[in-house]
């Protein structure tokens, strides 16, 4: 591992002031420290923000819930308000990683874990995300677990967070402070598609620091998070779905669908949502909506299975939620 300096920030303002080129913020470290061991991340300086006083979960005005950026994943999933009012979010967090990792990983860090693939993590191989312009061996090589939606010729990596998929479905607000001041980024707007700049996972600028995630009031209807993976625990999603369905008098009054494991970002399935609103809550309608969404898919030879898998998972989840 390349030598680096270590410092700890006492407040968000101090962290932003202390940020300089070559600095990286350190949260729980479960992704960053791993990438540093692999030689993928080589910060000159780590600014530890894991002890900032941002570890509260509190109700705010307008029936919203503010989750501080340093809240640990375990504490988010176990919180009574999250379990009772945002069960889809609790389930998504619990579906991610292991008990040990969730105890350490922060909410801010979970969002900012790198969008990645095995080539990104192997410094002996080219990777446009790690070394822009060097090429993408995944497109010709092992891409079985990688993106089928929104990928580019430069990158087919996926964002592995489960939590972010639920936050994308909820439309949570990400609170950011930085050298340019404070701002709010509604999910799924934090993450970006690779395009020809796959080195950028998010829309954040250097020095930007996530301070909180604010949850809107729970949308009406029933919700669920389902994850399909190669083993039943401690594995990334091949495909996951966060869905909310509100059915009144047999018609879909409201619908939110977000997909994980299929794109460089947590993928909000807006076309499927639009296709469903106002229509009947039937298996046939769910199937048509899923197919409408997945018409945009551009699978590679070895991940084409993800398209029918995503379709079937969307349909099964909505059928489970329909009254």
């Amino acid at each position: 591992m390349k030598p680096f300096e270590y410092a700890r920030a006492a407040s968000p303002a101090e962290a932003v002031r202390g940020f300089a080129p070559g600095t990286m913020y350190l949260g729980g470290g479960t992704n960053l420290v791993d990438l540093m061991k692999l030689g993928v991340a080589e910060p000159e300086r780590l600014l530890d923000v894991s002890r900032l006083p941002l570890d509260a979960i509190e109700q705010t005005d307008g029936d919203r819930v503010r989750v501080g950026a340093t809240v640990r994943n375990t504490d988010l999933a176990a919180h009574p308000v999250i379990r009772s009012r945002y069960p889809m979010l609790a389930r998504a967090v619990l579906a991610g990683a292991s008990g040990q990792v969730r105890n350490v990983a922060t909410v801010g860090g979970n969002l900012l874990q790198r969008t990645r693939c095995t080539y990104f993590q192997d410094v002996s191989r080219p990777c446009n995300k790690r070394r822009p312009g060097s090429g993408c061996p995944a497109i010709e090589g092992d891409h079985a677990g990688l993106a089928v939606l929104g990928a580019s010729d430069a990158c087919v990596a996926t964002h592995p967070s489960d939590m972010a998929v639920a936050l994308a479905a909820l439309g949570a607000d990400v609170h950011v402070t930085g050298p340019g001041g404070d701002r709010i980024i509604p999910m799924p707007g934090l993450h970006r598609l690779p395009g020809d700049e796959p080195e950028r996972d998010t829309v954040l600028e250097p020095g930007d620091l996530i301070t909180a995630v604010e949850l809107p009031p729970p949308p009406p209807g029933a919700s669920h998070y389902r994850k399909v993976r190669e083993r039943s625990s401690f594995a990334f999603a091949l495909v996951s779905v966060a869905a909310v369905l509100d059915v009144r008098d047999g018609a879909v009054a409201g619908c939110r669908i977000a997909l994980g494991g299929v794109a460089h970002v947590p993928w909000r399935a807006e076309r499927a949502e639009q296709a469903l609103i106002g229509g009947p809550a039937t298996g046939e309608a769910f199937l048509q909506a899923a197919e409408t969404e997945l018409e945009q898919a551009g699978p590679l030879p070895r991940n084409a299975y993800k398209v029918p898998l995503a379709r079937n998972l969307i349909v099964a989840t909505l059928e489970e939620l329909a009254p």
């Binding site: 270590y6 350190l26 470290g29 479960t30 420290v33 791993d34 780590l46 530890d48 894991s50 375990t74 008990g99 040990q100 990792v101 105890n103 350490v104």
Partner: peptide
């Protein structure tokens, strides 16, 4: 008191 992977924790942190 909370279980964690000591390989991913920096001693300074």
């Amino acid at each position: 008191g909370r279980r964690a992977n000591s390989c991913l924790a920096l001693a300074v942190a």
